[in-house]
Nucleic acid binder design. Structure first.
Lengths: 126, 126
DNA sequence: TCCATAATACAACATTTATTGAATTATTGA
DNA sequence: TCAATAATTCAATAAATGTTGTATTATGGA
């Protein structure tokens, strides 16, 4: 079940900050691609050719924002993407869309907008 | 109709960079709230208490990323949010989820993930 | 135990981004 | 036309981020 309401401005900001670096966006997309299996830090570094020190810096930012989770496996650290947070984020951005009159959203930009466009009318707040 | 495929890494990056500033996130959310009506620059600056010079700097970044559109009205510049781009962005992030086996996504993080979780199975690529 | 490996923490430096004030462009109304 | 307003551009400064090398912590295997 999706729970819209966990998100607030500081969290949204830290998510956007986290994904605003090319390195971190690469890391997150790689982990999304890997799915539940995840990857240990060394594998990520090798795949993206990022030096260990620098990778630690970026993984810390992603972890702090909640975009990735980390689990210790012996001397390895396994990282996994948290896609659910992205879903919450979009819900947050669209929550007050058109001042509560989302039927107006048809007129916004090139395509439909608001939560209807994301999930369909029946799925909002589901 | 949503068209998944307009998004690429540089565009995704510029969107995240755009929304990684508190001022720009405030501006974008305010414009989403306003809907198709939009707001002129001066109104935005007054509402958020951002000096004109600084606001121009941030509006330029949002416009360049495609998150807002701008239309001239006499000596005013009217800005509107482009929600559709956010929908595309999520589709981009989830496109290669779980290496093409999105049924694995149930195991990711706290909630469902991938496009199914965003739009429901029937809506993917619709 | 001892050495090699995985990963992170810290500090110095380099780079990028944000903010401010002054000047510029363009439009409206008297 | 001329003064006032809306908004931007530009240049200088301030602040935040990213990167690198060295040192540290902790685990696993010989």
């Amino acid at each position: 079940m999706l729970y819209y309401g966990m998100m607030d401005k500081p969290i949204a900001l830290s998510i956007f900050e986290s994904l605003s670096s090319a390195t971190r966006l690469d890391v997150f997309r790689l982990l999304v691609k890997k799915g539940p299996e995840g990857m240990v830090a060394g594998e990520i570094g090798a795949a993206l050719e990022v030096p260990p020190t620098n990778l630690s810096f970026h993984l810390k930012a992603l972890t702090h924002a909640g975009l990735v989770s980390v689990a210790q496996e012996g001397r390895y650290q396994r990282y996994r993407a948290n896609m659910a947070l992205m879903v919450d984020l979009i819900a947050y951005l669209t929550a007050e869309c058109c001042a509560g009159h989302p039927e107006q959203c048809a007129g916004m930009a090139e395509a439909g907008a608001c939560l209807d466009a994301v999930c369909g009318p029946a799925r909002a707040m589901q």
